[in-house]
């Protein structure tokens, strides 16, 4: 849940990157970290296994400074995608203001995309949030790989809300900043709407 701090004139929102294991959530955060000027970012942390799989979460705080008299801050989190970590995902979703769902475009990962989306709906509900109205964008990641599902098929299977979607090649930064910017706009528009 957004924190509106009238004492410090500061707004803090929480954005969570969700999706199946290895879909590229951590890669999104790493790219954003690399792309942002130092003035806009804090320290990034990754709680991961030795093989770089997210174990609990990644965290990247962004600070856009004073715009319109209030300092605007976003805290980006990724969840661990592996199926067994559903309890951790639930924790990370607590108080989420917006979601970037990172799907893996590869044909053999479609079932994992679908179950991750279902898992997200349930976990959101447990936090008192609703997948049908929380600010959400989707990224069809790994478009550079050979055996991928056509975008129309991804839209049809996963984008039940017709939210904005982005084709992604996360390690090259394709579709990364645009997805972030869009979800940020959605969060702010809802907050002030």
């Amino acid at each position: 849940m957004t924190m509106l701090n009238y004492a410090k004139k500061e707004i803090i929102c929480k954005i969570v990157y969700y999706g199946p294991g290895l879909s590229g959530k951590t890669t999104n955060l790493k790219f954003i970290y690399g792309k942002m000027d130092t003035q806009y970012k804090g320290k990034m942390i990754a709680i991961a296994t030795e093989t770089e799989r997210t174990l609990f979460f990644d965290f990247l705080p962004l600070d856009f400074g004073k715009i319109k008299g209030f300092t605007t801050k976003f805290q980006l989190y990724t969840v661990p995608g592996q199926a067994i970590y559903t309890n951790s995902r639930k924790l990370i979703l607590k108080g989420a203001d917006g979601i970037v769902f990172v799907a893996d475009s590869q044909i053999d990962r479609m079932d994992d995309n679908k179950s991750s989306l279902k898992d997200m709906a349930l976990n959101l509900r447990e936090q008192g949030l609703d997948i049908r109205n929380i600010p959400l964008v989707m990224q069809w990641n790994k478009r550079d790989l050979p055996n991928i599902v056509p975008v129309e098929k991804l839209e049809e299977t996963l984008n039940f809300r017709k939210v904005p979607t982005f084709e992604g090649v996360a390690h090259k930064g394709i579709g990364v900043m645009s997805a972030l910017k869009t979800v940020i706009k959605m969060v702010l528009n809802k907050l002030g709407g």
């Binding site: 509106l4 707004i11 605007t72 702010l188 002030g192 709407g193």
Partner: peptide, 9 residues
Amino acid sequence: KKASKKDLP
């Protein structure tokens, strides 16, 4: 509470 639009970017 909702925020006032004038405070938001």
